[in-house]
Design a protein around this nucleic acid. Structure first.
Lengths: 354, 354
DNA sequence: TTGAAAGCGCTAACAT
DNA sequence: ATGTTAGCGCTTTCAA
């Protein structure tokens, strides 16, 4: 292994100068810098990160904690984080908080290994008080995606507003019997996201003078399969028939599309469906959705960490943009003499930045 | 930050003893060990990984390189790696070789940062010679998943055999016009996996005396959407009609199912479909598939690294198990007087371990 | 602008 | 079984 000493010798300068020349910290004459760079390159010198970390206290590494690795949203967010971090020369240390409680415990204990990372981002997790305190007590930049998290800087869309927008789109198309597929109230790994989305749905209904009906709400577990089952319930029960469904995620919305097909219902003629996410598969299914730009969320989180590391104080929280994408799973409810649709002007795009 | 010195002082032993007591290396009396552990716990001592790495040369960190983060297979494999590694106290440093060439370059250069990781696993990537040499030259355990990779230890299923098995299942059910959806020959990010699967398909046909027909093979890009488009081509063209489709991945198979439905074909009555993977969504669609246990692949790779780190030499290559899972997207081709099906005994499970 | 020197916190011989 | 003693390879004052 080529050490800094060897480079110093070959370039006829001190190790300190090599360090300065290569890292960009401190002043080095242009000529010296060039010479050092050339020698380093030639010798194939690469600094030892351990030595560098030990001496400087910086690791150029940020930890990322995720609850799932095999779900589209998390993978996509992780990709965004990775991209932005890598651009700035940072590595990412991945912690998958699988389902195992012991692992989770272990990770948070292991994070006490100060100095292992320069910052941490937690994606879409409901952190308990101890965990929050652990992270906050690390003395390094921390940001939660999918927040707001109590006591931690966060980055998130306004889930209530997003759900409201989705529901209002349906209402504007004349729908009044609108079902909702959300999360399983028992399974609460995330930031109450399902609850907040349901809230937005109910608010939109209330604003339109529609009485929320608990029978029109089904849990879908944020999976395609869950959405399928939930939609069948919503569409099958006597007296529950809906003309539109607002699913809390695109994957559940896709499940609903499949369920409608199996039931012989045409989408959107017989049933309008809207989701939330901006899933890859959205265009394929023609799915109307509210895009939350997951990759951008990841990039933003990375930038918050990076900025904080550069001394730019973090805002305690930051609301992210989202955008209604009207495709072909939603349409105006058929006009009937008894019930004229009063507004169909919602077509097109509607961007929000907060 | 609590240092080893402070613990040593409080426990009235030397720093070396603390190190030995806590790491398990070297001999320490049970009494001393207990005392040191208690003190360390009480003081909240956690070793500095940088200092430890610098002194020992071990990082307790393994690098994982993946080409995608938002695809089910890769996320699942990554989860398996993460799980096994974490169990043994190793962290994972994630490198996402997105599409950007510059990033890819950067990652392989950055890996020259010896000592950053104790080992590396590359998942499902076609590595060029320079990259292979870079990894091999790291002087640390390396394993490629999805191999065989030339010049690198690998872990993989026998893609030819898997494809053969899938195709033979169809043949055993009496199908003779069997279409295949594979990869895009131009897009070759992986280990020629698509090519090897196509090979297995062709071998199986040949063995059954069926003449392979290039018109029955379509690229599907390993996505649902690609599978959909490919299936439509396969099913739509005059004179190309098939009674079964073997898709090179479950996602393409799902796309094919959707395409068949849109075409008004019943699966499996009018069209049998089989995939490869063991995808999460398989049970939902009743998809017959050859499970390749992606999470287990990740775990195996991690174990290879771990074993190598423990001094157990790695086998140059290791073939992984797979299993035919017959569900409900495949059935015997309807008997006709002219063409009797001769074997329908393939139902059930068929496990393979290599 | 550059160099000298003092660590960063730990581990691993080598002694005892 | 435990302590002593050198570093691991780099960064960073402090001087010059």
């Amino acid at each position: 292994m080529v050490s800094i000493e060897e480079v110093a010798r070959a370039a006829e300068v001190s190790a300190a100068t090599v360090s300065r020349a290569l890292s960009g910290r401190g002043h080095v004459s242009a000529a010296t810098r060039r010479r050092v760079e050339a020698v380093a390159q030639e010798l194939g010198y690469v600094p030892s990160s351990a030595a560098s970390s030990l001496a400087s206290g910086r690791t150029r590494n940020v930890g990322v904690i995720v609850p799932f690795l095999d779900r589209w949203y998390f993978g996509t967010v992780l990709g965004g984080i990775s991209e932005a971090l890598m651009e700035h020369g940072y590595d990412i240390t991945l912690y998958n908080v699988a389902s195992v409680e012991a692992t989770r415990q272990r990770i948070f204990d292991s994070f006490i290994h100060r100095r292992r990372v320069d910052g941490v981002v937690a994606v879409g997790m409901e952190l308990d008080e101890v965990e929050t305190a652990t992270l906050a007590g690390l003395g390094i930049p921390v940001v939660a995606i999918g927040g707001p998290a109590r006591g931690l800087p966060w980055i998130a869309i306004d889930d209530v507003a997003v759900a409201r927008l989705a529901t209002e789109h349906l209402i504007a198309l004349g729908h009044r019997r609108i079902g909702h597929i959300g999360g399983d109230p028992l399974f609460d790994l995330d930031f109450h996201v399902p609850t907040r989305r349901r809230l937005g749905y109910e608010e939109a209904l209330a604003d339109a003078g529609i009485q929320p009906d608990a029978k029109l709400v089904e849990p879908g577990n944020f999976t395609i399969e869950g959405g399928y089952v939930a939609a069948k319930q919503l569409l099958g029960g006597p007296g529950r028939s809906v003309t539109a469904i607002f699913a809390g995620s695109d994957e559940m919305a896709i499940g609903a599309i499949l369920a409608a097909r199996d039931l012989g219902l045409r989408v959107p003629q017989d049933l309008s469906i809207i989701g939330i996410d901006g899933h890859d598969l959205g265009p394929f299914f023609g799915l109307t959705t509210v895009d939350q730009f997951p990759a951008a969320q990841g990039r933003s989180a990375a930038r918050v960490i990076l900025a904080d590391l550069d001394g730019d104080a973090t805002a305690p929280g930051q609301a992210l943009p989202y955008e209604l994408l009207v495709r072909s799973t939603t349409m105006a409810v058929p006009r009937t003499p008894a019930e004229p649709a009063d507004d169909r002007g919602e077509r097109g795009r509607q961007a929000h930045r907060a």
